[in-house]
């Protein structure tokens, strides 16, 4: 049984840790609010862009852009894996990595574009093929920060290194729920290929189809990547906030247990001393 002094010392150290987790919880909570606002505000743009593209794709001439070409068989896929730069975010990165690996197993060959230090570290340890690494994504990312990632994905696809590009990220649902998500971003073919059922519409393109496609397709990839990074950021801070809150609550429980144990030890010691004194006095009397 640990001594009373040991117990008191442990109470102090748990309190110190608790101060730390509480501070991290508060920081994460404020970052979380901002990140959640950012992701919710930018979702409409990405969704509209997606729906425009989905409606348009059946009428677009496949020859207009290499990004519209489906290649079979698929010999190699690229997975853009968006993880966090720092830990203490609960199981978020592990879950995403597991989802990605499970998918990679079904493919003949997979290469990674690693975003975030955590993913970079894990993929290196696994000796996975990594095409590019992007550590240190700022907390308030702009398209300037994320477009380079999209460009790598597009280049790898157009120069034939990979036949498909998938995007793995943690989708933000709410503060308590984040979902590992894997989505194909290249080639850009409509989600459902029931072309025959679609009404034949003559789309007009201004100034011309080529210019429009050259503008809209790369833009779409960039926006998808940007959106995924915003989703990941919101997930990251939510997960960290929850993890730190749990840690702070657990510390509270631990502290009260330890104080109870310390008080019991103290009481035992006092009782023992009293007994010794009493029995000493008894012995003198006799």
């Amino acid at each position: 049984m640990p001594s009373e002094r040991d117990l008191r010392r442990r109470v102090r150290s748990v309190k110190n840790i608790q101060q730390l987790t509480r501070a991290m919880q508060l920081v994460a909570a404020s970052k979380m609010r901002r990140a959640q606002e950012a992701v919710l505000a930018s979702r409409p743009f990405e969704q509209k862009l997606r729906s425009v593209l989905n409606e348009l794709a059946p009428y677009a001439d496949r020859e207009l852009s290499p990004l519209l070409h489906r290649r079979t068989p698929v010999r190699r896929v690229a997975i853009v894996l968006i993880t966090t730069d720092r830990g203490l975010v609960g199981p978020m990165n592990v879950n995403l990595l597991r989802t990605a690996l499970r998918f990679a197993e079904t493919q003949p060959d997979a290469a990674y574009v690693a975003v975030g230090r955590k993913g970079i570290g894990s993929l290196r340890r696994m000796r996975a093929t990594v095409i590019a690494e992007f550590p240190n994504i700022p907390d308030r990312p702009t398209t300037n920060d994320t477009n380079v990632i999209a460009r790598v994905a597009v280049d790898e696809f157009t120069n034939g290194n990979v036949d498909e590009v998938h995007l793995g990220f943690t989708r933000f649902i709410n503060t308590l729920r984040q979902e590992p998500t894997l989505r194909r971003i290249l080639p850009l073919v409509p989600e459902e290929e029931d072309l025959d059922q679609l009404p034949p519409i003559q789309y007009l393109f201004e100034p011309d189809p080529q210019t429009v496609m050259d503008l809209i397709l790369p833009r779409f990839i960039e926006m998808t990547v940007y959106q995924a990074i915003l989703e990941s950021k919101a997930s990251q801070w939510s997960a960290q906030m929850v993890a730190m809150r749990n840690a702070t609550d657990a510390a509270d429980d631990l502290i009260s247990d330890l104080i109870l144990a310390a008080n019991k030890a103290r009481q035992t010691r006092i009782t023992k001393e009293m007994l010794e004194i009493a029995s000493g006095a008894e012995a003198l009397k006799g």
Binding site: L56, Q202, L204, E206, P207, V212
Partner: peptide, 19 residues
């Protein structure tokens, strides 16, 4: 403001995608 000049859109316009 389309790239090649202004375009006006009224109801029942033909499907159009413009920069």
């Amino acid at each position: 403001p389309a790239t090649d000049g202004y375009v006006g859109i009224l109801p029942h316009h033909a499907p159009l995608l413009t920069t």
